[in-house]
């Protein structure tokens, strides 16, 4: 089950406008709209008629200017926000709320300040029914996965931004979600930490076989990571274009293909 989609992912028709290959669509977004109601009674469309299919184990980035609705779309996949019209389904099941196999990493680490690193990760097992000792053991394993077993006893305020975001990733992985939804997770980090965490994320993605949806402001970050880059445009938020990234990994910023794509995305974003 986990083998063929990897193949599909690299297939040329994966980047067809709006839709991926129908039978392998793992996350399926059909005509999704989001409308906020104003005090005056007026309705503000935030997202208009979004169609998108994401294959299992695919790494997809959302990119676009502020206000294009990329975070809203991510939150709707996470089940944290309702869909005003249309539908979103994961593995054929309509998303009605969180906890359907979506792990979320937020922009600000969103760690509970009153819990230590290991307890924050263990929080992910809240609904698992596991014994306390077992939760802790698994939480320590996850911390080891992100290279932080030594910081298990620290509170969030005692950690650097990079460490906080690692703990946040470990926590999101707790329930072994099929999907990892990440909202500008590295946006607040310095360049070096950022590159480090990008490599870490790719390693985890390859080791654990996840479907990742990644929101970012950075073209090069999207290019370094993704199989496909979905470019959204504002007013109202909609998908403008989808760029397949058929560059071999590990990717290099100096690669001519990389630069050509960078330029193409930049052109699309700035018009």
């Amino acid at each position: 089950m986990s083998q063929s989609p990897v193949m599909e992912r690299r297939s040329p028709d994966a980047g067809v406008e709006g839709h991926g290959p129908a039978e392998t669509a793992f996350i399926r977004i059909d005509g999704a709209r989001k409308v906020f109601t104003q005090r005056s009674g007026g309705a503000v469309p935030v997202l208009d008629n979004v169609d998108l299919a994401i294959a299992e184990n695919e790494f997809v980035s959302f990119i676009g200017r502020s206000g294009c609705g990329k975070t809203t779309l991510l939150n709707m996949i996470a089940g944290l926000e309702d869909v005003s019209a249309g539908r979103i389904a994961i593995a054929g099941k309509v998303v009605t709320g969180p906890g359907q196999g979506q792990g979320v990493v937020f922009q600000q680490h969103a760690l509970f300040p009153w819990l230590t690193a290991v307890d924050n990760v263990a929080f992910g097992f809240h609904k698992s029914g596991l014994a306390k000792a077992e939760r802790r053991r698994r939480a320590l394993d996850l911390l080891a996965l992100v290279g932080l077993e030594a910081a298990a006893g620290r509170y969030p305020r005692e950690m650097s931004g990079g460490m906080q975001q690692r703990v946040s990733i470990a926590r999101a992985l707790a329930l072994d979600p099929q999907i990892l939804l990440m909202d500008e997770p590295f946006g607040a980090l310095d360049e070096l930490t950022r590159i480090e965490l990008q490599q870490e994320l790719l390693r985890i993605w390859e080791a654990r076989r996840k479907t990742i949806v990644f929101v970012t402001h950075s073209i090069s970050e999207a290019l370094m990571l993704s199989d496909r880059i979905v470019l959204l445009a504002p007013n109202p938020g909609r998908i403008k274009r989808i760029f397949p990234v058929d560059l071999p990994r590990p990717r290099l910023r100096t690669d001519p293909g990389f630069n050509a794509l960078y330029q193409a995305i930049w052109n699309e974003l700035s018009t």
């Binding site: 939150n75 969180p98 979506q102 792990g103 509970f112 929080f123 809240h126 707790a174 329930l175």
Partner: peptide, 23 residues
């Protein structure tokens, strides 16, 4: 965001209140 993070782990209602809102 803390409430959202907890909701992604399926917490709601009284449990969400007790383990996130209260602390």
């Amino acid at each position: 965001t803390l409430v959202r993070a907890a909701r992604t782990f399926g917490l709601k209602g009284l449990e969400l209140y007790r383990s996130v809102v209260l602390p």
